[in-house]
Amino acid sequence: MKIPDPLRVDFHLLDRQVVDPDGYLIGKVDDVEVSVGEDGVPVVTAIHIGQHALGNRIGGVIGRWLAATARRLHETGDPRPLRVPFELVHKVDSAVVLSVRHELMDPSALEIWLRDNVIGRIPGARDAG
């Protein structure tokens, strides 16, 4: 049993760590996408990862600020959270394990910006600790 049955969307999915097959930390499940199928029954179709989604859930001043900074950092493409189709979820236990490697997904805009402008410029940034 790789996905708990019954699956509790709030308990099993929301706010769990998302990792790739090698254990690389991709993000948290910041929201879950639900779509109504042909038979009228809603199904879980994707997980959303990103501060925009988290900010919208937290709400208030801090939530709006989180969502706004996440949107502003996107230089290319559209400022939306990373959307991972549920078919790519391989396992749900203490983490949500995906069946694809993180290189195949859009990396976080904040991570790229900090890597290119701050951390990547410091000598030794390429050496493993």
Partner: peptide, 20 residues
């Protein structure tokens, strides 16, 4: 609503069955 409960179908898609 505290939680959404889904049953995982044969194809692996969780379909909503109940609301907590």
């Amino acid at each position: 609503v505290a939680d959404l409960i889904a049953q995982v179908g044969e194809d692996g898609t969780p379909r909503m069955v109940a609301v907590l």
